[in-house]
């Protein structure tokens, strides 16, 4: 039986993912300016933790809970974990391609993939819009129907 009020188990403070998106944007912008494949790989690892282990273990989420949240007011709004967690998975795919591009001597591939991840992170940070989440339906739509 699921709990009567599934309020905390799979929900997060909405400000957490927004904060994480700002940090991600800063990291990816700095990685682009320096052409650092290692930094993109590090961001890929951060995405991987959030996507695979869950947002409560996501490094920027931990940073938010420990350093930022105590300085802000109480939680005003919570959201389900699934959408931002899925977005981390989409971010992971782009960051892996970006890091692989840079580290294998294809800086254009690295820059394009990293740039796309940056657009998604910045849009999320600035407006709350989740590009990764929207891609879910886009991908499912594009694939031919598996079974009726």
């Amino acid at each position: 039986m699921p709990p009567a009020h599934p309020s905390t188990a799979h929900e997060v403070d909405v400000r957490g993912p927004r904060f994480a998106a700002w940090v991600t944007s800063a990291v990816l912008a700095f990685a682009l300016l320096t052409g650092s494949g290692a930094l993109v790989a590090l961001q890929a690892a951060v995405f991987a933790v959030g996507a695979l282990a869950g947002l409560r273990y996501a490094p920027y989420g931990v940073l938010f809970r420990v350093l930022v949240a105590p300085r802000l007011g109480p939680v005003r709004e919570r959201e389900p974990e699934a959408p931002p967690r899925f977005a981390q998975l989409v971010g992971l795919v782009f960051a892996v391609v970006g890091a692989a591009g840079y580290l294998s001597g294809a800086p254009l591939v690295g820059a394009v993939a990293t740039g796309l991840a940056l657009v998604a992170a910045l849009l999320n940070a600035a407006t709350g819009f989740c590009l990764g989440c929207e891609l879910y339906l886009t991908v499912r739509r594009a694939r031919p129907a598996r079974t009726a």
Binding site: A29, A31, L32, L33, T34, G35, P107, L108, G110, A111, V112, T114, G115, L116, L118, V119, L122, L123, A126, T127, F129, L131
Partner: peptide, 24 residues
Amino acid sequence: MDPIGAGALGVALALTAVGTWWLR
């Protein structure tokens, strides 16, 4: 500074601006 990366950063910022405008 990496010129390819700087170019990609510029394009990414422009795309984000367009996206934000479209969403608004």
